[in-house]
Amino acid sequence: MSWTHEEVVIEVRSVVAEHSEADVDITETSELVADLEIDSLAVMEVVADLEDRFEITIDESELQDVVTLGEVVAAIENRLEADDKLKETVSA
């Protein structure tokens, strides 16, 4: 299956929302740990869920210095692109 940018954002947001216990809005600049209160152990569960959704394997090296939701989206897109599973978004 291939994904567009918008689809990736929606999926990442929904996975993250399932794990966040913080009562705040989730935006692209939300930090998983500091804003959404997903601790370092729970974050690994998020990664596993993302791998299942997108059918990819994310190496830890691809997550270095990645802290916001937007950066997670970018990391996923890099992986999808490398696996040839990212669709060009058609601009209106």
Binding site: L32, V33, S40, V43, V47, E60, S61, E62, L63, Q64, D65, V66, V67, V72
Partner: peptide, 9 residues
């Protein structure tokens, strides 16, 4: 230890 993912460096 190597740098952990999803963390500031």
């Amino acid at each position: 230890y190597p740098p952990a993912g999803l963390r500031k460096l």
